[in-house]
Design a protein around this nucleic acid. Structure first.
Lengths: 129, 129
DNA sequence: TTCACTAATTGATATTTACAAATAGATGAT
DNA sequence: ATCATCTATTTGTAAATATCAATTAGTGAA
């Protein structure tokens, strides 16, 4: 056993697979590609993307939205119809955002292939055993 | 534009999709599921998993291996046949490691479905436009 | 006003990545 | 033997992300 200092996965004690990450940003972009929405609607719609199993952190969502807006990928404005709280902010995808989403899609197609390969290899190992 | 502080993606200036992450650990486990190997062999074999596009950071690999060993998922020993450098360490998957890999596979099957759903929705949007 | 509720924001810390550099063993040349 | 050089491993550090907890704000009702 080498002496290098471990630095990962100290969370909890029994190691568990951690969900693949960095998927929230493209998911939000995709939802906004459909139509403008405010944060809480986005949370709800993530489920429809098949992310029920991965309840998203609301603060993470707001931070991603903030950054996307700072980068010109989305714009925001106060909702016309008001709700039972502070005015909701409605986010809209920009042209730049569409381009960015498209780049994400290409990236994710590669990821998808990678995953397929992985699962294929695993199944092959198991079946031959 | 809200005033919350952005905290992401300050790397470079023009935002780029960043590859989905946390995939290295299961990939290494899968390779070791095939047969014991040392770090550099693992680097080479990652390509065969369809990860050519994602050259892995060698230090990341060593750290993951360190942690996996600390958690009993793999064991290591010095290679019998020595090479043109310090003795290579050969890693072997343990039973616990197999179980862990299996948990990863289940996790990744879900991820795969999520990705499919995502791409499906995107394609539907685009095709209907 | 105070409470409950929804929406948005902030804080703090843990985890993970990404890049750079240092250490260490082996071999061969000078 | 010392040095340069190659391979293999290890360490350092800062940036980026994730996670959890708490706080601030607006609205309407009791």
């Amino acid at each position: 056993m080498p002496r290098g200092w471990g630095r990962r996965q100290m969370m909890g004690d029994c190691p568990q697979p951690r969900r693949i990450s960095r998927f929230l940003e493209p998911a939000l972009l995709l939802l906004l590609h459909d139509k403008p929405a405010h944060a809480y609607a986005l949370v709800d719609n993530l489920d429809k993307l098949g992310m029920e199993a991965y309840p998203a952190d609301i603060s993470a969502i707001y931070r991603i939205l903030y950054d996307l807006e700072a980068q010109g990928m989305i714009t925001s404005a106060h909702d016309a119809e008001s709700s039972a709280g502070p005015p909701r902010r409605v986010y809209t995808l920009t042209e730049a955002g569409e381009v960015y989403l498209n780049a994400w899609v290409q990236e994710l197609r590669q990821t998808d292939q990678m995953l397929h390969r992985f699962l294929q290899v695993y199944d092959a190992h198991v079946n031959s055993a």
